[in-house]
């Protein structure tokens, strides 16, 4: 056939994508097998929703949320301060910020938790000599130790996120701010920070979600968050798997809520006017949408002869 024979009305037949159908079938089969396997597991599924609403569990949920928020607040506030110190023209401040990040990012979070929790072993009291002094054990409760351990660890990572955000702002923006007579502090507040937010927000969401799960580490120093509550329930009745599933369900719910929040905050900042191409971009990945049949090549269709 050549172009002379083309009538202008011949239909286009999509290529059938057999490989996609085959691999999809395989994966679905494995998934179904896993579900059937789970049904045969020695788990009393009826206990899961029961433990789910236990008073202990709900109190644990409350502590998990509270700890996540206090750790992230600590991490973000200190992280921003450290990031600003890091880019300071003052070499002492910038070097100290580097050292801070080096130490708190370099040590395992669990180890940091133990250090804060056991602080009283090293310092019986804390305070400023001559001014005030308090017993370490009254100040550093397990919740405070967890906030310090996880929050300071987070602040070191967060400082790097903020720094990356600062670096993403074109230097010309800073020069333009200077050229209209802005002081460095105004330039930071009005020009650099708002533009850096675009880069800072998405990883902040990730860190928040990681922190929800990360607070489970605090169970080892006695914070009665979800995981320790689970352990308290199961140590009484030995329904370990059931209690674990119940706690897992709570974690999934918390993470889902945070993800939805992250999606909207990201959309607010990412639909930034500086990139008009990103404005119309909407997630179109819904299962069984029209795109599904297009990408699978459909049932009909055929193979060119």
């Amino acid at each position: 056939m050549d172009s002379e024979q083309y009538s202008g009305e011949m239909p286009i037949v999509p290529l059938r994508k057999w490989g996609r159908w085959a691999s999809a079938a395989l994966v679905v089969a494995v998934f179904i097998a896993l579900i059937i396997g789970l049904r045969h597991a020695q788990i009393v599924w009826g206990d899961v929703p029961k433990f789910f609403t236990y008073r202990t569990m709900v109190q644990g949920l409350y502590q998990t949320v509270l700890l996540t928020v206090s750790c992230m607040a600590t991490g973000i506030i200190l992280g921003v301060i450290i990031a600003i110190m890091r880019r300071s023209p003052n070499p002492v401040l910038s070097w100290l910020a580097w050292l801070y990040i080096y130490i708190f990012r370099g040590l395992p979070a669990l180890l940091q938790l133990y250090i804060w929790f056991n602080l009283a072993l090293a310092f019986k009291t804390i305070g400023i000599p001559g001014l005030f002094s308090v017993s370490t054990n009254t100040v550093i409760t397990s919740f405070v130790a967890a906030t310090l351990g996880l929050g300071l660890n987070e602040s070191a990572y967060y400082a790097e996120i903020v720094r990356a955000g600062f670096n993403s702002v074109d230097h010309g923006q800073v020069e333009a701010a200077a050229s209209i007579g802005m002081r460095p502090s105004q330039s930071m507040r009005r020009v650099i920070l708002p533009q850096a937010m675009r880069v800072i927000i998405p990883p902040t969401g990730n860190d928040f979600i990681n922190m929800i799960k990360g607070t489970s580490l605090a169970s080892v120093i006695g914070v009665r968050e979800l995981l320790l509550s689970e352990s308290n329930i199961s140590s009484g009745n030995f329904r370990i798997m059931e209690a674990l599933m119940s706690a897992a369900l709570w974690y999934m719910i918390l993470v889902s809520i945070a993800s939805v929040g992250q999606y909207f905050i990201e959309k607010k900042y990412a639909s930034d006017r500086s990139n008009p191409a990103s404005m119309g971009k909407v997630m179109s990945r819904s299962f069984l949408s029209r795109g599904f049949w297009q990408r699978m090549g459909g049932f009909s269709g055929g193979v060119a002869k």
């Binding site: 010309g172 923006q173 333009a176 701010a177 050229s179 209209i180 007579g181 002081r183 020009v191 930034d272």
Partner: peptide, 19 residues
């Protein structure tokens, strides 16, 4: 900064505040 406020500058790459 006070001195710069009295001197306007136009850049090769415009440098408008993108936000």
């Amino acid at each position: 900064a006070l001195q710069r406020a009295q001197i306007g500058m136009v850049f090769q790459r415009f440098n408008l505040f993108s936000n």
